[in-house]
Nucleic acid binder design. Structure first.
Lengths: 218, 218
DNA sequence: TTGCCATGTGACACATCTGTCATATGACAA
DNA sequence: TTGTCATATGACAGATGTGTCACATGGCAA
């Protein structure tokens, strides 16, 4: 957690520092990110930095919280209606919102995407507790979200009960990632308007048929 | 490429150095790996190291080639019969072999698994050319392998032609990763014998039904 | 034996980074 | 005005890392 000194800072200064830190972490990843460069870019002195934060991990945590807060703004409209969605609609909406977040806030997006791979031993446990914190703040986790949607769809008979929820969940989560990646590539390469989500539709229809009850008797 | 001096070395010494380098890269990843530690562990001097290799990238490349050579030993039995397999059998065999490789050569496995995430800018292009090199040496690439299998299965009517090959390929490759991960976790946590591949079977059957022609008319 | 050449060695120069500390600044209260 | 306290600063110590270079060693050929 940042020190009180940082919290007391005028919002503008806080924003600058966090922004520069985001750029640094996004560009170099955690391990290679340099406090040196962050303070140079932010225009604060070395001494000040250590009066704001304990160390690199500390500011990194703050950056992660900021990013997750921003991302939640995009996801919340979907989450609020989560009871209404079946699994497939939920997946589609989540993918679209995640990518829209990336398009409109690329700096934040970049970090969340592939910063998750540090080799510092302490880092893995730190990231785990980070996730816990984020889930706690937002009263939600991907697992609980998707498990609920899966159970809903099971109850509705949209999904065959021949598969275990664990396997469906794994399947689901890995597809979310892949669909996001493909949709992202599609959205960033095309100059076309926003509307073409045919890639998501196509991948989801494979999933839908794969999980459909009709297989049960085949 | 390593210098001639390294190539001239007695095999035992070469093995020691590459082994220690593998441990180092596996433990710390490329960015945080230290030549210092590699030479300490290998018992060679700093000067010698630079007479063997240009720099860290150089020895890393050699390590990657060694790993891919080892992995190919596991995959080759499958690849030799690739024409005989349909997509689903091929996927199953590839996953099983990849995990068996991991079980029997964990050090090598670890590096291949998640070392692919360096942030050094040059690194991304380096890794790309590395892959090219490996594919060239083995006259194969995952893409070509799976595309062929998909086309075979399409020809046999096992797969509906309502989906594009690109989407099926994406689907396939991401599932290979996930199935490997799950099967790996299963194999490393259980003390049970080797035989239980039910997780793979379950995930593949979702894929099989998802891609099956019968959906076409539904 | 002598001389040559491939190989081995570690001290060294230079760079980068982190975290600390003595000191400066500036605002506000007494 | 003066004293106090939060904040700001950058020089500094200490760690770690890379790549080089002048010199040592040891085997082999003449």
């Amino acid at each position: 957690m940042p020190k009180q000194t940082f919290i007391n800072l005028p919002q503008e200064k806080k924003d600058t520092i966090l922004h520069e830190a985001m750029l640094e972490f996004g560009h170099y990843g955690f391990d290679l990110a340099s406090i040196q460069r962050i303070i140079e870019q932010s225009g604060i002195s070395r001494g000040s930095f250590y009066q704001y934060f304990e160390d690199k991990t500390d500011i990194f945590g703050e950056v992660m919280l900021e990013i997750s807060a921003r991302k939640m703004k995009y996801l919340n409209p979907v989450l609020e209606k989560k009871e209404e969605y079946g699994l497939f609609e939920l997946l589609k909406e989540m993918v679209k919102k995640a990518v829209h977040f990336g398009l409109e806030d690329p700096v934040a997006f970049q970090i969340g995407k592939d910063l998750i791979s540090s080799k510092t031993l302490d880092m893995k446990t730190f990231l785990e507790s980070m996730k816990e914190e984020v889930y706690k703040r937002n009263h939600i986790s991907p697992e609980s979200l998707y498990v609920k949607a899966i159970e809903n769809s099971l109850a509705r008979g949209e999904i065959s009960n021949q598969y275990s929820v664990e396997v469906i969940l794994s399947y689901t989560m890995v597809l979310v990632d892949k669909m996001s990646e493909l949709y992202w590539m599609h959205m960033t390469r095309q100059t076309k308007p926003d509307k073409d989500d045919s890639i998501i539709t196509e991948m989801l229809s494979i999933l839908r048929y794969g999980l459909s009850s009709s297989n049960k008797t085949s």
